[in-house]
């Protein structure tokens, strides 16, 4: 059992409502793993469960087993911040920390986790992350401006850069290109494929073309369960489940 992410019979309820209903998942290392599914099927909740950011919500109950990079995420001895250090997250809604500058938004993670030893190293890391997120050229002359001044698409790329700068082992991206134009989307997709070398990417996307372009494996989620999972080629050519087929051919979702 040597997976980047291993989920066994995961049940999650918020405020007494079951959101995830027995999710099973095995994500190998160094792949792009896409999660598709209609709105409200629980994709974002699943991601929030993997790095325990769901702890911040009230009335949450989690049952089942989640193992990320060998760490038993819901073990009582596990320190949630330690999990979040390993599992970077790009949220569905761009959420830069509005009062911090563009630079500080990216630098905060490395600072918190003591990834750098000098200001110079930090500068280099921030620049590297912003370049990877295809944002550097647009912000290099105003790194000290508050992040809230950026456009929606720029904020989205800033959040990608922020997650990259933490050097996570697993990177979860929740619709990272929803606000981007075609050129930026292509750049981010290129980045996702390139990232595979060093990290495992879990990508939530509504766009089946995007999934087919970048993912090695896809999972199809429906009403809190994973209905189907497999290699991208197989799922897209011979979907095992009727609903999967209807979803990828655009008949619903």
């Amino acid at each position: 059992m040597d997976y980047a992410v291993y989920v066994k019979d995961l049940w999650v309820s918020i405020g007494g409502r079951e959101i995830l209903k027995g999710v099973n998942l095995e994500v190998p290392r160094n792949v792009v793993f896409a999660v598709m599914g209609p709105s409200g099927s629980g994709k974002s909740t699943l991601l929030r469960t993997l790095n325990r950011i769901l702890d911040l919500y009230e009335g949450v109950s989690v049952r089942g087993r989640v193992v990320v990079e060998g760490i038993d995420v819901y073990d009582s001895r596990t320190d949630p911040p330690a999990v979040r250090r390993l599992v970077g997250m790009v949220f569905q809604m761009p959420n830069p920390i509005p009062n911090l500058s563009i630079y500080d938004n990216v630098a905060l993670g490395p600072k918190i986790n003591k990834l750098v030893r000098s200001r110079k190293e930090l500068d280099e890391l921030v620049r590297w992350a912003l370049e990877k997120a295809y944002l550097w050229n647009e912000v290099e002359d105003r790194l000290d401006a508050p992040a809230s001044k950026l456009s929606g698409g720029q904020q989205q790329r800033l959040c990608i850069a922020r997650a990259l700068a933490m050097k996570p082992r697993v990177l979860m991206m929740d619709e990272p290109t929803s606000n981007l134009d075609a050129v930026a989307t292509a750049e981010i997709e290129k980045l996702i494929i390139e990232l595979k070398r060093d990290v495992t990417v879990i990508l939530v996307t509504h766009n089946s073309f995007q999934a087919s372009r970048v993912a090695d494996h896809v999972a199809f989620m429906y009403d809190g369960q994973i209905l189907e999972v497999g290699p991208t080629g197989r799922v897209f050519t011979r979907p095992a489940h009727k609903l999967t087929e209807r979803y990828i051919t655009g008949k619903f979702g």
């Binding site: 979040r84 920390i97 993670g109 997650a163």
Partner: peptide, 25 residues
């Protein structure tokens, strides 16, 4: 806003560090 809090905690901040960032906000 919840999304700002999530952003801070998702970077691996402990509650102490997150509070400092939030108080600065």
């Amino acid at each position: 806003p919840q999304h700002v809090r999530e952003a801070i905690y998702s970077l691996g901040a402990s509650r102490f560090v997150a509070s400092l960032v939030l108080l600065r906000y």
